[in-house]
Design a protein around this nucleic acid. Sequence first.
DNA 1: GCGTAACCCTACTTGCGGGTAGGTACGCTG
DNA 2: CAGCGTACCTACCCGCAAGTAGGGTTACGC
Lengths: 227, 227
Amino acid sequence: MTTGPTGKRLPRAVREQQMLDAAVAVFSRRGFHAAGMDEIAEEAGISKPMVYAYLGTKEELFVACLHREATRLMEAIARVVEPDLPPDEQLWRGIRAFFGFVAGHRDGWGVLYRQARGQEPFAAELAGMRRRMIEVVAGLLERAVTRAADASGGTGAKRPAPGRDLTAMAYALVGVAESLADWAAEHPDEDAEVTAARMMNFVWLGADARLRGASWRPSTCRDSPAA
Amino acid sequence: MTTGPTGKRLPRAVREQQMLDAAVAVFSRRGFHAAGMDEIAEEAGISKPMVYAYLGTKEELFVACLHREATRLMEAIARVVEPDLPPDEQLWRGIRAFFGFVAGHRDGWGVLYRQARGQEPFAAELAGMRRRMIEVVAGLLERAVTRAADASGGTGAKRPAPGRDLTAMAYALVGVAESLADWAAEHPDEDAEVTAARMMNFVWLGADARLRGASWRPSTCRDSPAA
DNA sequence: GCGTAACCCTACTTGCGGGTAGGTACGCTG
DNA sequence: CAGCGTACCTACCCGCAAGTAGGGTTACGC
């Protein structure tokens, strides 16, 4: 009775949201497989066939949850990033929005996202979202690199090339965000703002330097003590 | 018949390894839930009750797989990192070993690892491994920071403190590695060595600067256009 | 060569949970 | 107040895969 037994008849749109809320909660604490449709129905204060009538199959339901949460996340970020700001400012805002969202939607994130990777039916869906995210970040990086080039008369040395390098870097950035989201989940006392700052500190110093053409040298020896 | 129908009777230790190989393969391509014990048994060239006799329940079997692969990974890294080397060299070696392992054990990594997160029964097991990994990295960072302090007469400004900051950074590092492992999985043509170099470039420039006390300033405005 | 213990199989049971058939109550429109 | 559509329910089905019973066969020690 989490959503509360409204007792009364509700229009479809409302019930659907309630069901999604319930589903997110249950999937989150049980995992996709262990979650039961009955349990979800009960949590939504409704009975099973309703769920099937409105949201379809268990898989479809999960995808619906995933979709809703992902969209919300994207929007939360998009709402804050204005494309004319300097790259670091954009990144900073994006990151803040991200951790803010994650802090606010513990279960929405926690398991939906974690769950979806690897679980074949959903991997695709999730990968799409992730890809969009990464493309956005990669675009940001690209603008940052051209900007840096303009600023300091272009000695186009071994600055990262637009293609592979930047996408890889975008992956890395997203990876940092995801991992720090986990860290934040384990330390609920930490403020989202602080986590965001931590990430920015770690990430921007390196990214900025790298985008300007700096790099790390493999130092001395080529080691390889057997395989 | 992947492992090949040996036809003959084999000592327990051998069969167990064959079963684990088969299980890793099947779990990897189907996911935990969709994988069937029959299928695993068939892949191992053996029949189901054997699997139960030797490795127990499906869950236990999965944990066994996870455990074996994780141990191998840890060992592959530990084998290469010598604690007396300079921090960046250690990191570099560790990262190389990591991506090398992942490239070699595509399925061992791919799904076992991805699968385990979120799936309640295994989350704990996996979290343990991850934690050990992170502690190692955090330790590395800590030695790096004291080292940096010694080198440049300690103007102990706002260098990251031993506790929270470093652990968070370790999380970030591990996150980068995981995420780039995904990227590498999607681009099989990329050499592990190259991916490792990419990561090092991205990560060390930032980490090094940060460990020396550099930081990023929140720039100008405190934005927040509503929630 | 013979017992015994470890390997290994075919064939079954079982229960859980996704999915559905069919019927009831409520409210809105005329 | 007749009638209709939509929200909603109870009660059931049934397939699938995890897990097991019980029996056969090969190797190895003595």
